[in-house]
């Protein structure tokens, strides 16, 4: 279809310069709570859509969203196994920080989100990967919780430590969620 329009309604710098002028976004995902992980995924996909290089460093409770949804008990020692039983990994099993009610809260929240056509954490995580968001698992947390590379979803970066996370934060907008 061919149509006639006036000149652009937005004044933009040439694309090359515009992209260069914007720094990246680095998010430290510390919390495994549904609403925080949701926010992390919304912000990281949006920043990637804006052409920014995005890195998310998943650490402590925040590492559990990267566990495969079909993984049941993880860990090697009984304490790690107990931990994974009490705090099952995967985006499908995230609790709300309040009004969790043994999982009834998140189920209702997801139902509301679906009704309002808000993308689920699962969809957003897939979009983030498609848009090239770098997902970095924290190596120390993996060791601590007994999580193996195979317990995590495909397509993450190599597990790394604080120095890698801070290097990614250099000159970028940094959020601690």
């Amino acid at each position: 279809m061919t149509i006639t329009v006036d000149r652009p309604i937005t004044e933009t710098a040439p694309a090359e310069e515009a992209t260069k002028a914007t720094g990246g976004l680095t998010i430290f995902c510390l919390s495994g709570d549904l609403e925080r992980v949701w926010a992390t995924l919304i912000l990281s996909t949006t920043a990637a859509a804006l052409g920014k290089p995005v890195t998310v460093f998943f650490t402590f409770w925040g590492l559990f969203p990267l566990v495969k949804n079909d993984r049941g008990i993880t860990g090697e020692m009984w304490m790690q196994k107990m931990l994974s039983f009490m705090n099952r990994g995967g985006t499908s099993h995230l609790p709300l920080s309040k009004l969790n009610f043994l999982g009834a809260g998140p189920a209702m929240m997801r139902s509301l989100a679906k009704g309002h056509h808000v993308a689920s954490p699962e969809e957003l995580l897939a979009l983030a990967q498609d848009l090239g968001v770098k997902l970095v698992p924290c190596q120390m947390t993996m060791d601590l919780m007994g999580l193996k590379r195979d317990d995590l979803i495909e397509g993450t970066e190599e597990p790394a430590g604080a120095a890698t996370a801070l290097a990614a934060a250099e000159g970028a907008t940094t959020l601690f969620v």
Binding site: M1, T2, I3, T4, V5, D6, R7, I42, T45, T46, A48, A49, L50, G51, H116, H117, V118, A119, L127, D130, L131
Partner: peptide
């Protein structure tokens, strides 16, 4: 100026950030 629409993207009904994210993908 005369322009040609290369592609149409229908994101009706979708909430933030899907319209922007799908546009970036397109």
């Amino acid at each position: 100026m005369t322009i040609t629409i290369t592609r149409t993207l229908d994101v009706k009904g979708f909430a933030c950030p899907i319209p922007i994210v799908r546009t970036a993908q397109a």
